[in-house]
């Protein structure tokens, strides 16, 4: 079922619940994936994912189709991830480094084969980036999102996103080389 059909079901009061259920099933894995990479912990990613869909449900009547449903949901998801991290930092009065340290310890605790060590190192390198740059990197590297769509999701120009991504890659490679 494409987004157009989903929207039709969501806007019809008789099929609204069914439509919303289909939407959750269609997007839940992608939204969880984005959230998990940003907040690292499963429980936090679960909170963020649920919150994204609650907001989608509340705001679906105001969705004017200026962007695609996919872009609109991703925009809500990325905002929710950044807000979650900011709130977490404020709640515990933590600076950026301390959050990175805490998340880094959680990455170490992830079970996996020994070959995943390089992946864990990459994730730790990502934690050295500012939240927004990490988000840009994740959308491009893991989600293969085109810059044009990323610009719509993040509200940033394509040029700025390209520069941000290349800086992120450089920082990650430096971290992998030196650490």
């Amino acid at each position: 079922m494409d987004d157009k059909e989903l929207l039709e079901k969501l806007r019809n009061p008789d099929t609204r619940n069914y439509g919303f259920n289909l939407l959750v099933r269609a997007y839940q894995q992608r939204i969880y994936r984005i959230a998990r990479k940003m907040v690292v912990d499963h429980d936090d990613a679960d909170d963020v994912t649920q919150e994204v869909f609650i907001k989608v449900h509340k705001a679906i009547d105001h969705f004017r189709e200026d962007a695609s449903l996919y872009t609109w949901i991703y925009r809500i998801a990325t905002n929710e991830c950044l807000t979650f991290l900011t709130r977490k930092r404020r709640r515990f009065f933590l600076p950026l480094e301390d959050i990175a340290g805490e998340l880094s310890a959680r990455i170490d605790a992830i079970p996996g084969p020994s070959g995943d060590e390089i992946q864990k190192k990459l994730q730790k390198a990502l934690l050295t980036l500012p939240d927004k740059q990490r988000l840009v990197f994740n959308l491009k590297y893991y989600e293969d999102m085109p810059y044009e769509q990323m610009a719509e999701v993040t509200g940033t120009s394509e040029g700025a996103l390209k520069a941000s991504y290349h800086h992120a890659v450089k920082k990650i490679e430096d971290f992998m080389k030196n650490d």
């Binding site: 969880y32 990479k37 390089i118 992946q119 864990k120 590297y141 893991y142 490679e173």
Partner: peptide, 15 residues
């Protein structure tokens, strides 16, 4: 390992 492209792309976070 120095370059990002040398690292296989893999998602270690599983639900």
């Amino acid at each position: 390992m120095k370059r990002l492209e040398d690292i296989p792309k893999k998602d270690i976070f599983e639900a």
